[in-house]
Design a protein around this nucleic acid. Structure first.
Ligand SMILES: NC(=O)c1ccc[n+]([C@@H]2O[C@H](COP(=O)([O-])OP(=O)(O)OC[C@H]3O[C@@H](n4cnc5c(N)ncnc54)[C@H](O)[C@@H]3O)[C@@H](O)[C@H]2O)c1
Ligand SMILES: NC(=O)c1ccc[n+]([C@@H]2O[C@H](COP(=O)([O-])OP(=O)(O)OC[C@H]3O[C@@H](n4cnc5c(N)ncnc54)[C@H](O)[C@@H]3O)[C@@H](O)[C@H]2O)c1
Lengths: 205, 205
DNA sequence: GCAATATCGTGAAATTTGTAACGATTATGC
DNA sequence: GCATAATCGTTACAAATTTCACGATATTGC
């Protein structure tokens, strides 16, 4: 398969989300132009992204929504359940644990860890919060696909090291710190401060 | 001034965050190579980004941390306080309200709104949560720079329309919905589902 | 059945973004 | 003071990404 760029992946996931929403509305087909109007992407971009995965469209008709969703998901997700492990059950971690929307997609939070005894040993929205000390042992037994870091910045590198040691290859990092990880491990940083400031700057600069 | 791309802005904000951290450590100067090692960017990219804003560096020495930070902030932030208005004081909204880190940067949450009577009329971390009905009136009086949407997806377009009506030009949208806004309004979408899935796909596809 | 038309898929052109190379400049050590 | 070395700023080059243009194809209406 061709190398799919990170930008393409984000756009395709946006399309998948939109296709799901169209399915819920009972729609059967959608054109690249229609998807473009909803998502804010361009029609050509959508067709080109889709063309990475084969020929799914029907000229003069567009795409069958269910088929397109299936094809896109098969190529980029390729698993029915993507297993997430969460570090830090503080303000942000709890919001993530309580969010029902992940399950509707293929994301499943399989465990959470917190160093604070008052927070661990609880169950939030069906997910058990374990004490941090047990993390390495438990993670190694149950392979996870993604590690999410929602701990204070001082602890974030230590947690990243543990995630790497457990053999997990994807990290989502909410701490405002640039993590050091081996190059085969992929980190996606979400620093909300930077996101907010970028939103402001993009509009004003 | 030249047109600064959105990517440059994100990188510069990352550098500013790093410079702050270096200042706290008591460092005085840093080279582009040093910044590159910490941030994961490349030294050339950093020098090129900085060159958008003038000549701040000293050959053979690098950059004075305080000076560089000042120059970068002056050019891209240009305000001492960036005022944020938050919609939705649910799980995510509360996490945002309780986060102390925004204030250390120049972000200030000036008001929050929630439709649920049980949540409004409270004060969280010094920020008052108002009932949603009062939003348009209150926002128009106190101009804000950014509107943050942390309401359920059904309500997100309605809230976006209100933010637009209040004359705010930047939106950060956490709802998994593509908003319709006039083209002069800038939307930054943060769909955590897509972020998590992207992190997984980037590492595996 | 056939012309008309909407839409797909795609190679080529244009634009944007990132990289490499290198002269210019300043501190350091002798 | 002068050679040396580190680092900046910038120009030229390369790679990635987006946009354009258009041929191919399936449906619709007559
Ligand atoms: N809340 C926000 O809106 C927000 C915004 C921007 C950035 N962040 C960043 O996200 C991270 C989490 O923020 P928060 O507001 O949830 O903080 P928080 O203090 O509410 O929660 C952090 C949790 O991590 C736990 N913890 C500490 N060390 C740990 C370890 N080694 N392993 C497991 N758990 C550990 C703490 O006990 C605590 O429960 C921070 O790095 C913060 O800078 C948060
Ligand atoms: N929590 C997460 O980790 C997470 C993850 C991904 C996406 N999201 C998205 O973020 C948004 C918020 O998520 P949440 O978990 O905080 O949901 P939540 O249900 O906990 O909170 C939503 C809040 O918005 C309020 N609200 C409803 N309509 C409103 C209106 N018109 N104006 C003001 N307030 C209104 C509700 O009363 C509620 O308090 C949702 O769109 C969700 O899909 C959240």
């Amino acid at each position: 398969m061709k190398n799919i760029s990170s930008k393409t992946i984000s756009r395709v996931l946006l399309c998948v989300r939109t296709l799901e929403s169209l399915m819920r509305e009972g729609k059967i087909t959608i054109s690249s132009g229609g998807l473009a109007r909803i998502t804010g992407l361009t029609d050509v971009q959508i067709r080109k992204d889709i063309s990475n995965f084969g020929k799914v469209g029907i000229p003069r008709v567009g795409y069958n929504i269910r088929d397109l969703k299936t094809v896109l998901e098969e190529f980029i997700l390729r698993k029915n359940v993507i297993r997430v492990i969460l570090f830090g059950a503080g303000n942000l971690g709890k919001a993530i644990l309580k969010y029902a929307g992940f399950g509707k997609q293929k994301l499943k939070i399989v465990a959470a860890f917190d160093r604070d005894k008052k927070k661990s040993e609880k169950v939030i929205n069906g997910v058990k919060v374990y004490p941090f000390e047990k993390a390495l042992f438990l993670i190694k037994k149950s392979t996870a696909d993604i590690g999410v870091i929602a701990v204070p910045q001082e602890a974030s590198q230590e947690v990243a090291d543990l995630i790497v040691a457990a053999g997990i290859k994807s990290i989502v990092n909410f701490a405002p710190v640039s993590l050091k990880v081996p190059k085969e491990v992929h980190v996606r940083n979400i620093d909300l401060t930077i996101e907010f400031l970028s939103a402001y700057c993009d509009a004003s600069v």
